[in-house]
Amino acid sequence: MTAHAEETDRTVGPTVSGYGLSYAITSLLSALLVVLKESNQAVHDLLVAITGHHWITHGLLVVILFVVLGAVLARRDTGMGGTALITTVVGATIVSGLIIAGYFIL
């Protein structure tokens, strides 16, 4: 395998890594927003005031953040390796899920 082929094999390209990283960051921030809005009435009320329902605002915020952050990171080319990106995506999914489930089970 040539050096170029090895490099291609290790990275996944700027668009994929940018949006992959954006997914991981947005998921974690979304989980933290769940804890924040459920434990702070003022934050909850602010989310309600924006669209009429906290969950609609929450959904809009995460979709906008995912798209914008993904576009920014894709242009910058994070240079993140494929294995690191997969670990980040899977890890963020597990941690975010545990934060949300953990908050409501306690």
Binding site: G13, T15, V16, S27, H58, A101
Partner: peptide
């Protein structure tokens, strides 16, 4: 709330699939 993550991951899937 977990569904919002699932929505983003499903949106990311075609972006990843358009890679090499």
């Amino acid at each position: 709330h977990v569904f919002l993550m699932l929505l983003l991951l499903a949106t990311f899937l075609p972006i990843a699939a358009w890679g090499d």
